[in-house]
Design a protein around this nucleic acid. Structure first.
Length: 282
DNA sequence: CCCGCAGCCTGCGGGC
DNA sequence: TGCCCGCAGGCTGCGG
């Protein structure tokens, strides 16, 4: 479910609500997520102050005093609810809850249990197996046409699947890849290594642009995702192709010259595109 | 190394 | 109304 903009929205909310607070306790209702939640996490975290939050790709890292970091991943169906203790009702699939001494409560709800909660030494964050292999941050200073060109060089797979590879670019998922390719006018099935320099340049602009717009809108809400304050994101209204099979392409005037947005399946996942606007790598 | 696919889970919406 | 099927925003591990 959550891609970079949704994870960024969640991270910012956690930061605003929890930064600087002291953990009263962590409740482990269910430990069998994507990987087992460390059994000693409640003990490690109890009484610790939360020092900072950051995002890396689709992962959230929470640093505690005493040198422990907690890694959160929302998988496909994960949400985090932040609220004052006592105002919450019982929730199904709430596997992990963090409570602070100031009475804030953050609960991880994840029906499909593809998400993760792990702990590590803070100084070993970047060496953690889940983070060590991640590619460039698409909103970071290192990302640009040159870097993107390096990611695509020699790749014979479709551009769509290459952009989903977290080892190359960290944080893109199905929605934002579709939206970025639309904005750049690039067909999702084109082999990555055949993109022209101008196509790469347009894509290198479209990727951060669509991510920034989505973050500004609070992310996309389709089925599972809600912001930690319970509000829906707003970016789904601004999707131009994702989930819009058959609808008129927003860039093709009049009775749709393109025949409407098309859906195809690539590597088992839906791709949405406008066959007229996204014709080549030009 | 590169690539595609099955599998991990649960829930929801559509078609019959 | 109820059942079955396909589908879902991620990621790993396997095979070719």
């Amino acid at each position: 479910m959550p891609e970079l903009p949704e994870v960024e929205t969640v991270m910012r909310t956690l930061r605003g609500a929890l930064d600087g607070q002291v953990i009263a306790r962590i409740v482990l209702n269910r430990a069998d997520l994507r990987w087992p939640v460390p059994a000693d996490l409640p003990k490690l975290a109890r009484g610790r102050r939360i020092l900072s939050f950051r995002r890396r790709g689709k992962y959230i890292l929470m640093r505690l005093d005493g040198g422990t970091s907690v890694l959160l991943h929302l998988g496909m169906s994960g949400r985090i609810h932040v609220e004052r203790r006592g105002t919450n009702s019982a929730r199904k699939h709430e596997h992990v809850v963090i409570e602070t001494k100031d009475g804030i409560r953050a609960g991880l709800v994840d029906p499909r249990r593809f998400g993760a909660v792990l702990s590590m030494r803070t100084e070993e964050e970047d060496a953690h197996p889940l983070l060590a292999g991640l590619g460039v941050e698409p909103l970071g200073p290192d990302f640009g046409a040159a870097r993107l060109a390096g990611c695509l060089a020699g790749r014979r797979s479709p551009i769509k699947t290459v952009l989903l590879d977290q080892k190359l670019i960290a944080g893109l998922g199905n929605i934002y890849v579709c939206e970025a390719l639309f904005r750049a006018g690039i067909h999702p099935e084109i082999q990555a290594h055949t993109l022209s320099p101008s196509g790469i340049a347009r894509l290198a602009e479209a990727i951060p642009a669509v991510l920034e717009e989505a973050i500004a809108a609070g992310g996309s809400t389709l089925r599972d995702y809600v912001r930690p304050d319970g509000e829906k994101g707003g970016f789904q209204e601004l999707h131009r192709v994702y989930g819009r099979e058959g609808e008129p392409c927003p860039d093709c005037p009049g009775p749709p010259a393109c025949g409407g947005v098309r859906r195809i399946v690539q590597s088992g996942r839906s791709s949405f595109f406008c066959p007229l606007r996204q014709r080549s790598a030009s």
